[in-house]
């Protein structure tokens, strides 16, 4: 177990990074400017890369250095670059038809984090876990998942949907760095690669949407019902 023998510096570092990742997801919830979303996502990916690197250092998982590097490169640089290019090309600056105002969105987000915490503590009780880092990793994983889904539900722009999905994936990735750092490296590499392909596919489809359907907002995509 990685979390069993950590010194207090490592513990604080891990909690700091996980908290930062959660805070960044609130930045996304609180802003309607797509550019800010992409930048917050990029920052969150860098935080996760830093987390991978520190797990590699404190847990002696050398291959996680590779994962950290690739996370920073793919999730922290390449994906945000592709998304920003998409935002610029489509000339969509902001989300026009959100279901909630930013403030209400953040309140709902906070409630979701509480739910995630309750879920994690109940799992922790079942498994007899007293370690705070493990509980926090579970909370961050579930919390980011829920916030990702919230982003997808309350926003209607196609790019917001992609970002929501990426936040969900970030959550799973963050959780797995702490919980299962020994997860086969092949799997992590393929997931990174898979994510890149998914985002490229999304990019192509969003541009088709703009050209052939004339809109990229799910509110206007109402042709197929029943």
């Amino acid at each position: 177990m990685l979390t069993a023998h950590l010194n207090s510096l490592a513990t604080s570092l891990f909690s700091f990074l996980m908290t930062l990742a959660l805070v960044l997801s609130f930045v996304m919830l609180g802003s309607h400017w797509l550019r800010n979303h992409v930048l917050a996502f990029a920052a969150e990916s860098w935080v996760i890369a830093a987390l991978s690197a520190s797990v590699a250092y404190y847990g002696h998982y050398k291959e996680l250095y590779v994962i950290a590097g690739l996370t920073a490169l793919f999730r922290g640089a390449l994906l945000p670059y592709l998304l920003l290019r998409l935002v610029n090309r489509l000339k969509i600056d902001r989300e026009f038809t959100p279901l909630f105002r930013p403030a209400s969105g953040m309140v709902v987000g906070a409630v979701l984090i509480l739910i995630a915490f309750a879920l994690s503590s109940s799992i922790g009780d079942k498994l007899g876990i007293t370690n705070n880092i493990t509980l926090m990793a579970l909370t961050a994983m579930f919390g980011l998942n829920l916030i990702g889904f919230l982003l997808m539900v309350v926003r209607s722009e196609a790019i917001s949907h992609i970002l929501g999905l990426l936040v969900i994936e970030n959550g799973i990735f963050l959780g797995s760095q702490i919980l299962v750092p020994g997860l086969p490296i092949l799997l992590e590499l393929v997931i990174l690669f898979d994510l890149l392909i998914i985002v490229m596919t999304f990019g192509i489809l969003v541009r088709y949407l703009k050209v052939h359907a004339g809109t990229t907002s799910s509110r206007d995509l109402q042709k197929l019902v029943g």
């Binding site: 949907h161 999304f202 489809l205 969003v206 949407l209 359907a213 197929l224």
Partner: peptide, 8 residues
């Protein structure tokens, strides 16, 4: 539209 919905 269908293919977008499918993917997302």
């Amino acid at each position: 539209e269908a293919s977008w919905k499918y993917l997302i």
